[in-house]
Design a protein around this nucleic acid. Structure first.
Lengths: 157, 157
DNA sequence: GGTGAAAACATCCAAGA
DNA sequence: TCTTGGATGTTTTCACC
């Protein structure tokens, strides 16, 4: 699995999770390797798929998306390809940031960002509920973000 | 709110969400502005807080974290500063990627990444449940990721 | 795993639209 | 006021050690 990653590779991944725009010079300072070595290792980590990409993280509320909600969705059982249709749906909906299929009764979780309650209401009643495959939804509003996604913790020896 | 963002700014944010390591030259090609203009605007978007940072996105399963789970946590009601203690706890736990306080009965949602079921079991029984403030947990395993977080959709005029 | 040099890039400033 | 193009220092990357 990560047998091919030594402690330098792990440190590079760790630093790039914290700041994805670090230069090879800055990486070199932080991990104690030459810049060219960092360049080569980083490029390898990208090519071999350890690094899937780099993302700018935006302040959602700064651009008007003040409401974050988690919507639990139950799909109708009868419809056999309802799951596929639903997957296509959530991928096409710009309000949906993340979507997971889960074990348990409430089959799906959607993380959704909208401007306000009016838009949330419109999204649920005019977009989600009318869809064939959707049987039931339960909406929970995010009151507080206790921990934001800053990547995984890498156990560096 | 975003009155101060014209369509070029929005396009820059959009492109940087998709690829956070775009150079100003690449940005310039994509949005039709000079590289120096892109540099200036990007720096302004950073300083003014529209861009919070840049993150490398890792392939979790490639580094051994094959299990993604959503844990719904109910806190004990009596303990008045249980919420604060819980917030501190989840921030200290490396397994927890995201944590939200929600409206509704199941008060908190944790997104957790672990190596396997043994580690999940250890995390729930030896870490989460023994904590004072935690009353009840319900664990849902992520069976499928329908949509990954690639940032929000910006409505560019 | 490091070095050095060439090419690409970021950033700043003077000047134009 | 917003934008451009060129000057200058940095960064990336490659061949080579």
């Amino acid at each position: 699995m990560n047998d091919r990653l030594d402690r330098f590779d792990l440190k590079i991944l760790d630093e790039l999770q914290k700041n994805g725009r670090l230069t090879n010079n800055e990486l070199a300072d932080r991990i104690g390797l030459s810049p060219s070595q960092c360049s080569r290792r980083r490029s390898r980590l990208e090519v071999e798929g350890y690094i899937e990409g780099y993302q700018a993280v935006l302040d959602r509320s700064r651009i008007g998306l003040d409401l974050l909600v988690v919507i639990s969705v139950t799909l109708a059982k009868q419809n056999h390809d309802g799951a596929k249709k639903f997957a296509r749906l959530v991928n096409d909906l710009p309000e949906v940031i993340e979507a997971y299929a889960l074990t348990g009764d409430m089959d799906y979780h959607l993380k959704v960002a909208v401007r306000n309650l009016a838009e949330l209401s419109r999204f649920i009643n005019n977009v989600l509920l009318p869809h064939d495959s959707v049987e039931h939804v339960r909406t929970s509003i995010v009151l507080d973000v206790l921990k934001r996604d800053r990547g995984v913790t890498l156990h560096i020896t």
